[in-house]
Design a protein around this nucleic acid. Structure first.
Lengths: 340, 340
DNA sequence: CAATTTTTGGCAATCGCTTGTCATTGTCGT
DNA sequence: ACGACAATGACAAGCGATTGCCAAAAATTG
């Protein structure tokens, strides 16, 4: 009777139960399950059958403890409710799942501190990190990258492997588009000061306007939310610009709403170009001209880069930089410059 | 020299290092950190200081292995890119984090199979589950609930503890609103057949239209995506209805786009009421009349319910049902019925 | 057919922590 | 001042896997 009690019925089956049922040692079960080549085919099949019969699922805890790998990757995003990140998240999720990894999603709430904190707290529980639009300083990032494998998205490639979405080149396309519509007073509406993308976009904007001998206007920084759109719109209007290139779609959509409230017609009185082509950009009013890119793919690529550095054997010369192309999607929020 | 080599410098500090530095046994460190009352205050402070000095982070793996608890809750949603779930996710994330839990987010891609699968695969690695808009059958759900602690969102309360968003009552408000605008031919545009919410909404719709002696129209089921909106719009128009109550906002927004394409004016020719008040409902064209509710709070409440069943000591009589209120938010997509 | 190499599978240590048990110490009541 | 009791901290046994090492068996070779 005592023996029967030893293994209480509600218990989860362990590798030992499987080994017993299959008549082999636990080490063999372990190998059969995670290192198929190492075990005879018939033995393996017997083990697999036993495992299936017991409905055995290995404990990731125990596995992680002894192997040192958790098969988990943490994905840090500044704002989980910003649609821009949905596609990234979906991309990473897909790719990680396909590789047998678990995704740990963390919302860092646009805070560098929370980001650094999460990086510390989770260094034991994740094999690697993907930082989307990190708000860390270069120094912080370098420190983090030295401690653990990590891939960034939209960040300078010098510090860590990165996937950048080539919005600067799209800025040029956008400017060209606006200039061709007759605009000469074009305003850049800036996003978060700590955002690397924002800096790059602003830089591209400055260079290109200088090139074209246009006066350079800018307002900002603004938090990348629709609710900041009102302030952004008012500031932009005040510059006297007839067109805006906006840090991202969220902000642009907020501006659209405010301009409508104020009776400023888009695009008749003011043209607006957003960035990212997020969910909503196609059905807002008017539909937003914006810079689109394969964001989901950016997430996928980031995962590939991370995994290939995590598992060097699977090779794939681990690149340090991937650039995602971008193109301008023209909708109804841009039009000819108003007559002066 | 050998001793120095034993602890390689790049290693993560363990509880043993802390114990050594503080001059106590590992068990004492463990207790000091996770069971404060069990250890003298000065000892505890010494330990905490040592831990801080070493930058010690306990391994969640090891902790989970020996304690049997993972401090992790898995949140399963049918579609991670559906904005409806953002707020749920954010709510659960907040509440879980506050309680020291980690959230594991899983996208089940609207598939009952993937859902059941995730539930199985993760039963070892999560202490509990939150199923948002589960697509499981009652039987599957009951089985899952028997195996592990779980809370559902928008699901029949009989099977497992649940948080329901009271959209059926909002359906009544919506009908009242439409009737007051003179509509008599009102069509219900259905969502996924396996969705419990959809069934409840449809039921409420039927009962209420019967009550008011209105003809009951319906079309569907449609997948809850904007891309299904075109088919839904065409079908709804074909019924001859002058107003639609749509399963959710995603679908409703898709319909809005299609109606616009076809030159059917909203609300002059057709009124549309959505459901959930998701991101985008306020800035689509025209802004959508919809049924709003505190969705983020629903996520929070679900977590509370789950945690109180996980940690009975923290008490809080664990309710089996929480109902979130809903109200109609009238925007521009509803208007007076057209003259016949 | 003996000698050698390759496969295969078992033993047992180990990962880092929790926790039941127990010995030690200090505090009280009488 | 002595025994009872509470408070504190140490010991050591796991938790469920992985993996280095080794021996037995099988396959290959000369």
């Amino acid at each position: 009777m005592a023996e029967l009690q030893l293994r209480s019925p509600g218990r989860q089956p362990t590798i030992r139960d499987v080994a017993e049922l299959a008549g082999v040692a636990t080490s063999t079960v372990s190998r059969a399950l995670s290192n198929p080549g190492r075990v005879n085919r018939v033995t393996r099949e017997r083990i697999e059958e036993a495992a299936a019969q017991l409905n055995y699922i290995p404990s990731s805890q125990a596995r992680g403890l002894s192997s040192g790998r958790t098969q988990t990757v943490a994905v840090l995003v500044p704002d989980i409710t910003n649609p821009f990140y949905f596609d990234i998240i979906r991309g990473t999720q897909h790719q990680l799942k396909a590789a047998g990894y678990t995704q740990l999603l963390v919302d860092t709430e646009e805070s560098a501190e929370m980001e650094a904190d999460a990086l510390q707290k989770m260094r034991r529980s994740a094999d690697g990190f993907i930082l989307a639009a990190s708000r860390l300083t270069d120094a912080q990032l370098a420190e983090a990258a030295a401690q653990q494998p990590l891939v960034t998205i939209n960040r300078a490639p010098a510090i860590a492997p990165t996937v950048v979405i080539d919005t600067p080149s799209a800025i040029i396309q956008a400017l060209e588009h606006l200039v061709s519509l007759g605009h000469t007073r074009i305003c850049f509406v800036g996003g978060p000061a700590t955002s690397w993308s924002n800096a790059k976009r602003w830089q591209a904007f400055q260079e290109e306007t200088a090139e074209r001998k246009l006066t350079t206007f800018s307002v900002g920084p603004f938090p990348p939310k629709t609710t900041s759109g009102a302030a952004a719109a008012d500031a932009a209007v005040h510059t006297g610009a007839t067109a805006c290139i906006v840090f991202n779609d969220l902000l642009a959509i907020g501006m659209l709403q405010r301009l409508r409230e104020r009776g400023i017609r888009v695009p008749e009185d003011m043209s607006i170009v957003g960035c990212d082509d997020i969910f909503g950009a196609d059905f807002c009013n008017p539909p937003l001209t914006t810079m689109a890119s394969p964001i989901e793919q950016a997430g996928r690529v980031a995962v590939s880069m991370l995994l290939s550095s995590l598992n060097p054997q699977y090779g794939g010369t681990s690149r340090r930089l991937a650039v995602m192309p971008t193109h301008l999607t023209v909708r109804a929020s841009t039009g000819a410059a108003p007559e002066r």
